[in-house]
């Protein structure tokens, strides 16, 4: 029987709760033949949610594509920490072009493969929330509406972390960033701003849209696998905590991610052709406060005085998500 030394942190992928899973139900990441597409030795920070999410997502995509995968990467943390030569952490064909064009570059790769009759090779594009919801949004929408054969993965850490924590269109209300500082009469990011790109993706009528979180890696892998089994434009929006930008303990990345999901602030769902077909129920609903208090970016909501109004606004957003997607049914 083949054996392999495994690191302690990998045991979680063999288990659910306190049960050891059957081999077939285990994650791709727990398999000995996983591809380690984003290999160890890269330069991400401790506790990086994006590195974790990318590793699971790409290895799952590799398995689903029988290792026939090309990845396009937008400029951002993932690109910078994974690629400095001669230490590229990528074990797959990988290209970075610009900040705002990853979806278009991926469309081009897909077009070239089509022209060459290489239906066996699959294309993914990936970027952070800045590359996806802001600067690359035009290219993303174009790739969606043309229904190009690309799976786009957005790793959402809710601000421009690579450049030093500035606000993006995915930054939540009240969050402190270096361009929405915790000063003045309305500290942090403004309530009533930002955009919901998964919903916008659904409005394009593309075959598959899902949200995922590193809080549920089984679910993340399953969604990537589902998406890889489909054709045309597909989109998965993955919530990835950033300990540096969020001011959370690197050891608490999974916990923070789980609180976002369990509070209802980051609903997990999947949609086919613009219609929601599934959602992950909240098992133990927590008040948003439990999530907020883990992160220094929301510290001004508690100190020097508790900002009950702001916390109530965020709770209202979470409650609206829970009710909209039926997360407690």
């Amino acid at each position: 029987m083949p054996t392999q030394r495994i690191k302690f942190y990998q045991t979680g992928t063999y288990t659910a709760g306190n049960r050891l899973l059957d081999e077939e139900a285990r994650t791709v990441q727990s398999r000995m033949d996983r591809t380690n597409s984003l290999n160890s030795g890269h330069r991400a920070c401790q506790g990086c949610g994006e590195a974790l999410g990318a590793r699971y997502a790409i290895d799952a995509a590799m398995r689903a594509s029988r290792n026939r995968l090309i990845a396009i990467n937008a400029t951002g943390c993932l690109e910078v920490f994974s690629s400095p030569y001669p230490e590229s952490a990528w074990q797959i064909p990988w290209m970075h072009s610009l900040f705002g064009n990853a979806p278009a570059v991926a469309s081009g790769v897909a077009a070239a493969l089509r022209a060459k009759g290489r239906g066996d090779v699959h294309v993914i594009a990936q970027g952070g929330d800045g590359a996806t919801v802001d600067i690359g949004f035009g290219c993303l929408s174009g790739m969606f509406e043309r229904n190009d054969d690309v799976l786009y993965l957005c790793y959402d850490n809710e601000a421009y972390m690579n450049t030093g924590i500035q606000r993006s269109g995915a930054t939540p209300p009240f969050a402190r960033t270096n361009t929405t500082q915790a000063v003045g009469g309305a500290p942090g990011n403004l309530l009533g701003t930002g955009k919901n790109v998964p919903r916008i993706a659904m409005a394009h009528g593309i075959s598959y849209v899902a949200t995922a979180s590193v809080a549920d890696l089984h679910d993340l892998e399953a969604k990537v696998t589902t998406a890889m089994g489909m054709t045309g434009a597909r989109y998965i929006h993955i919530h990835v905590p950033c300990p540096l930008g969020w001011g959370s303990d690197p050891a608490h990345t999974m916990r923070v991610a789980r609180m976002a999901v369990e509070s209802g602030l980051f609903p997990l769902f999947e949609a086919k052709s613009g219609v929601v077909i599934g959602r992950t129920l909240i098992r133990h609903k927590v008040p948003v406060e439990r999530y907020l208090e883990l992160q220094a970016r929301f510290k001004h909501l508690f100190e020097p005085r508790r900002n009950s109004e702001a916390i109530a606004s965020l709770q209202a957003i979470a409650d609206a998500n829970i009710s909209f997607y039926g997360l407690l049914e």
């Binding site: 396009i72 081009g108 070239a112």
Partner: peptide
């Protein structure tokens, strides 16, 4: 950008 991807894929 599309051509950048396509050219890098050998087209």
């Amino acid at each position: 950008s599309v051509l950048i991807g396509a050219s890098a894929a050998g087209a």
